[in-house]
């Protein structure tokens, strides 16, 4: 797979590869909407969130017919019930903990994404980082929702400041989130088969039932 580089728009890249590039940049499970925004900001547009809706199902089908036939799969992030999390895409080559979603994970994911986007902007990589670029708009939208990340909508956000603010909030959540996800990953590794580990188990029990059979998740 080719990485980086500006979006020349002529190269034929499948939707699947485009999503993979964006997810690799972010490093955490993400919603189709965010994947499309990152694609547009850093690799050139052309990907719409709606194109990703059936992707996970296609990948699961492909995995079922020939397991591990591809170098990577776009798979599910798993909830505290080991079921697939609604609307999140992840990469199968990530360690299991990275694909788990504990109660704090959505926020941690968001902050991690903001750091990744801001770092990518400061690193350059041929990114158009002008105030009207897609990258700047994406970062501005994220910075607004991080305490201390942006002044009152004046001017484009400063990537360094966003990184600092996001890391400050991450420090508050990181410990508990890492603990939750490690515990979930342990359970997933112990209880799930290959396919369910990637694409999630069917949901049949409520948390009450689970409390009777195993340790509580949270």
């Amino acid at each position: 797979m080719r990485r980086g580089g500006g979006g020349d728009g002529l190269r034929l890249v499948t939707v699947r590869e485009q999503a993979h590039q964006a997810l690799t940049l972010l490093g955490v499970p993400a919603q189709p909407r965010l994947i499309a925004a990152v694609r547009e900001a850093f690799f050139g547009g052309g990907l719409r969130g709606a194109q990703l809706t059936s992707l996970r199902r296609d990948e699961e089908r492909s995995f079922a017919s020939s397991p591990y036939g591809r170098p990577y799969y776009l798979c599910a992030a798993l909830t505290d019930r080991l079921s697939p999390a609604r609307g999140l895409l992840a990469v199968s080559t990530w360690p299991l903990e990275q694909r788990m979603v504990g109660p704090l994970s959505p926020r941690v994911h968001f902050l991690t994404c903001a750091v990744a986007v801001a770092e990518r902007m400061t690193a350059g990589h041929g990114v158009d980082a002008g105030p009207d670029s897609g990258a700047a708009r994406l970062l501005a939208r994220m910075a607004r929702n991080i305490p201390g990340g942006a002044d009152l909508d004046i001017g484009p956000p400063d990537p360094a400041r966003v990184i600092e603010a996001a890391r400050a909030e991450l420090a508050v959540h990181a410990e508990r989130d890492t603990r939750d996800r490690a515990e979930l990953a342990g359970r997933a590794a112990a209880q799930l088969g290959d396919r369910a580990r990637l694409f999630g188990a069917a949901t049949l029990s409520t948390i009450g039932d689970r409390a009777a059979t195993g340790p509580p998740a949270i």
Partner: peptide
């Protein structure tokens, strides 16, 4: 910030 998506079940 803990978030529970009840629709996951």
């Amino acid at each position: 910030v803990a978030y529970h998506d009840v629709e996951n079940v």
